[in-house]
Design a protein around this nucleic acid. Structure first.
Length: 288
DNA sequence: TTCTGCTCCTGAGGGC
DNA sequence: TGCCCTCAGGAGCAGA
């Protein structure tokens, strides 16, 4: 599942492959590949020269000379691949962008169709369609103190807050679990019950774990994430809790457990990450 | 205004 | 072998 390190790996690969090239043609093969909020028709990209590839959190965009942005979200299974034109189409090919020169093309592939593309005009800092999300931890202007204060206003479980892209962007289920394990915080702890020191440490751990993942090309937990050249990342080999249910915790040896959380899974060490005496919402649980 | 739960979607895997 | 069910989860929306 692409989160910030994976999207940054894709952004970097795209920048190397398509900046400076002129778009010849665009083709869309599935209606769900286009976000209904797209401000323009895709044909408007034809003849536009790519000048940069940007990213905030899990959103990325291809900016053209005419101040247009092809904004993309990879969802759960979206992939951008640079492929030879002669290569057979992938089963889940959703869109194709060809260029005026070169023997390759850009393909958007998405098995589960949660990803999307859209054309958006420029906003003050980022394209309008990505302007509603908060800065991510890799943003040079990310302000830890401000984010800590905003988290302290939340009564929800800390994991839900970490996944809220309007609080801070880029963190998904895998890195939320890994960050909470490193910070020794139970995912169901009420956000406003944590101290400023704990929250600062949590953000530091989240930055560290995602930096380490980025250095090895991201996490390829299954075949749903590859970079633009079709290669997998290697961070799944060093995950501490995600996908390790029943295996011993690297710190204390206690078996990792998986709990159901907001329609998805949370992985944690029940010894290192103490069950909160009072969880979010005020329900009382016992330590276990 | 804030919080919570549901929905969208597809393919893999397990059970019968 | 084939059918059915469950699971995976990002983001937006509706309802409380």
């Amino acid at each position: 599942m692409p989160e910030l390190p994976e999207v940054e790996t894709v952004r970097s690969g795209l920048a190397n492959a398509i900046v400076g090239r002129t778009i010849r043609n665009t083709s869309i093969f599935h209606h769900r590949a286009i976000n209904p909020k797209s401000e323009f028709d895709f044909a408007i990209l034809e003849g536009q020269k790519v000048i940069s590839v940007g990213r905030r959190g899990k959103f990325l965009w291809i900016r053209t000379q005419g101040s247009l942005n092809l904004v993309a979200h990879l969802g759960m299974s979206g992939q951008f691949l640079i492929q030879p034109k002669r290569k057979t189409d992938e089963v889940h090919l959703r869109a194709r962008i060809s260029f005026t020169k070169g023997t390759d093309e850009l393909r958007f592939i998405d098995q589960r169709t949660f990803g999307w593309l859209a054309i958006s005009g420029d906003g003050p800092e980022v394209p309008l369609m990505a302007s509603h999300i908060a800065r991510d931890l890799f943003d040079p202007e990310f302000n830890t103190k401000l984010v800590v204060e905003s988290i302290l206003l939340k009564k929800s479980e800390i994991k839900r807050v970490l996944l809220d892209q309007k609080v801070l962007s880029g963190i998904g289920n895998i890195y939320a679990d890994e960050s909470l394990w490193r910070a020794r915080i139970h995912p169901q702890t009420a956000a406003n019950s944590l101290t400023r020191r704990q929250l600062s440490n949590l953000l530091r751990q989240a930055t560290a774990v995602m930096s380490e993942a980025l250095a090895v090309g991201g996490t390829s937990f299954d075949e749903l994430y590859v970079n633009v050249n079709g290669q997998s990342g290697y961070f799944d080999r060093t995950l501490a809790v995600y996908g390790r249910e029943g295996e011993p915790c690297d710190r204390c040896g206690t078996p990792i457990i998986r709990i159901s959380f907001a329609n998805r899974s949370s992985h944690l060490c029940p010894k290192c990450q103490i069950w909160p005496a009072i969880s979010a919402g005020g329900t009382i649980f016992e330590n276990r």
